[in-house]
Design a protein around this nucleic acid. Structure first.
Lengths: 233, 233
DNA sequence: GTGGCTTTTAACCTTACATTAACAAAAATG
DNA sequence: CATTTTTGTTAATGTAAGGTTAAAAGCCAC
């Protein structure tokens, strides 16, 4: 069996610490790309597919949270672990809000980091039976390209989608003809399930319905109290 | 709408801390079962389905790790979070080894715990796309899809069912040609058996009969004082 | 800063649901 | 057979969820 190394994006501005950590991870059989600041980190993220991102919170120009937000816009799934020097509650909360998978206070024990990485990878392994690469969908006479964020009807001019429109439609498409639970969209896309995010989602459903009107065989049905259903007749 | 709370098993031997934590979680809309030691924790785990386990590491008789191992034997998926007073590396490693999802050092901030719980639940939400097939029934020339909540006659236009209509018909279908006791529907669907819920159920039986009139081979019979029978001739 | 795009919040309206009431009809009871 | 209990059915009510549109707030790039 082909042994494929897991790819980690490490964004850390302290050069010494960054190199030590990179070497340590590589010694443990991970493929590591090291970026020295948030800007570089984002560039490298766009150019490759990573299994995990380790982001330092305190960085010049672009901090870890900002970078995480950008990464989340491109990819809602990739696990993110934050590194921080301070054990500040505010930071931790902020981290989880942008979808962190875990959190580490410096100085931390390298073995602990390794275990966390393993645990996270294991989690993802069970979810990702082979999903990924699910970014292109046919929906009736529409074509959704979720990576480039556009929707095209009948091979015509592409309609640009906003990040939220795109994610929501993608999630619906993943469950085509089946139930896409409200809760799923709210936790996956909005990362919070409350009255306001729920209303926000309804607004986006309305927007998507407007786009999809072009094809009268495609519609989004509501299942009261449960969620929505993208049906193609 | 049916409010379904997430169920948490909390195993914590310190009575004060345990009760405070339990109350805090319940205030935040979780359904919490509190066990005061590892033994009791395992008993309660076996008797119910939990969405998350929070285990204290230091406990008399049976520590959190041992309990976690037993839980993992029964259930490989349920998320486990450890609580520990000390920030001991050994403990952390051991925790991840038995499949912990996260780790909290006491004293911890309650808001942080809440965020972690949310993050963990969100992770799980994705995995649980849930299997179907136990939601589809044939009833004469009808087809009942209990997940998408519709009833279709002869492959025609689906009739949308309300949650209660749906559950009631599903329960009848599960007992096709057999007695479906009143009490069963009332306790399972209405979660209460009194005069009013009983009348409410009768109203729903009337609604279902109206739908099922389309096929004269299908009917709902009453067995006086006992319940109902969905018969297909 | 300003302008343009995205997202959230608000307001108002419609639909969907569940319960309760009211009255009628069966069935059981003694 | 008179009366009580259970069931059948329809309609009215109150509440919650969802639909729609617009305004406000947030963000980013210039």
């Amino acid at each position: 069996m082909e042994e494929i190394k897991k790819k980690i994006l490490l964004v850390e501005d302290d050069p010494n610490f960054g190199i030590v950590l990179k070497d340590y991870l590589m010694m443990n059989d991970y493929d590591v790309v090291h970026a020295k600041n948030g800007m570089e980190g984002f560039e490298k993220f766009k150019k490759d597919d990573f299994d995990l991102c380790i982001l330092d919170v305190m960085m010049p120009y672009k901090d870890g949270f900002t970078l995480a937000k950008e990464i989340r816009e491109k990819n809602t799934d990739v696990p993110i672990v934050f590194l921080t020097a301070k054990t500040m509650k505010e930071d931790v909360l902020k981290g989880y809000k942008v979808g962190a998978d875990d959190y580490l206070n410096k100085p931390f024990d390298s073995e602990v980091l390794l275990m966390k990485i393993k645990a996270i990878m294991q989690r993802k392994a069970t979810e990702t039976i082979s999903d990924s690469k699910q970014f292109e969908f046919k929906i009736g006479r529409f074509e959704l390209n979720s990576k480039l964020r556009f929707l095209r009807f009948n091979g015509g001019e592409p309609i640009k989608l906003s990040p939220k429109e795109n994610e929501l439609l993608r999630l619906l498409a993943l469950h085509e003809n089946d139930l896409m639970p409200r809760e799923l969209a709210l936790t996956k896309i909005w990362r919070d399930d409350n009255y306001f995010t729920s209303r926000s989602m309804d607004v986006y459903i309305a927007k998507l319905r407007k786009y999809l009107k072009l094809d009268d065989k495609v519609e989004i049905l509501n299942i009261h109290g449960e969620g929505f259903r993208l049906v193609v007749n």
